[in-house]
Amino acid sequence: MALLTLAEAKQQLDIETTGHDAELPLYIDALAPVIEGYIGPVENRIVTETITSHGPALCLRQTPVVSLTSVTPVLEGAALDVASLALDTVTGVIIRRDRSLFCPGPWTVVYVAGRGTVPATVKLAAAILLQHLWRTQYGAARGAVGGSDDYAVTEPVVGFGYAVPNRVLELLEPYKTPPAVA
């Protein structure tokens, strides 16, 4: 599942020929890491991670979470029945339904992180980001002048520099990942 297809990218950029078909996938592939760096996984992926238990809960690092596949103690013991666990898909916190504690030690957790489907607002943000990135390369050749249009970013956003326009960040705001707990 890609944030944009080649056809959607060409439509956003008003490209009607095949002249850029070899170059556009590079731009399309660059969208997901930038957007996911801000809002967490969008495209579904299987994640395996080792987590140290802190008593009543296990906390997954990549959120949101679509589903939980397995939870297995690293040192000894059988995998837990995932039906006996409650998962907060937004925060990635796993607790036991019977409220018992997880035994100390590392656990191997396999889960699917992502959003199931790409929300329309995130898809629009990806299209606008694509247009911005494409325009920075081809702007002068297509008549774009200076930084006076909607794609100008007058102040850098911490961690993003000038690569992500403010309008993209505003579209992604409702989907921002919650702060991590150490």
Rank of each mutant, 00 (worst) to 15 (best):
A144Q: 12
R142A: 12
G146Y: 09
T17Y: 09
D21C: 05
A9H: 02
A7P: 09
A113G: 06
H54P: 07
F160M: 14
A144E: 11
P73G: 04
A9T: 01
E170I: 14
V34C: 01
T89V: 13
A113N: 06
V168K: 08
S53C: 11
G159V: 03
K10P: 06
A182H: 09
V109D: 02
E43R: 10
V181D: 11
V153D: 09
L60A: 02
I15D: 13
E23R: 12
T154E: 09
C103V: 10
Q62G: 00
G146K: 06
T63Y: 00
T72P: 01
G40Q: 04
T52D: 14
V145Q: 14
P56H: 12
T69G: 01
R142S: 13
D88G: 11
G55F: 08
G139T: 03
T72Q: 08
R96V: 02
D21I: 03
G143R: 09
T117F: 15
G161K: 07
T17V: 12
T89E: 13
G19H: 11
P106E: 09
G77E: 06
I46D: 06
N44T: 01
I46T: 15
V118R: 07
V153G: 07
F160S: 11
S67Q: 03
T18W: 07
I128N: 05
G55V: 06
T121G: 08
T108I: 03
V90F: 14
V93W: 04
L124T: 09
E8A: 13
S67M: 02
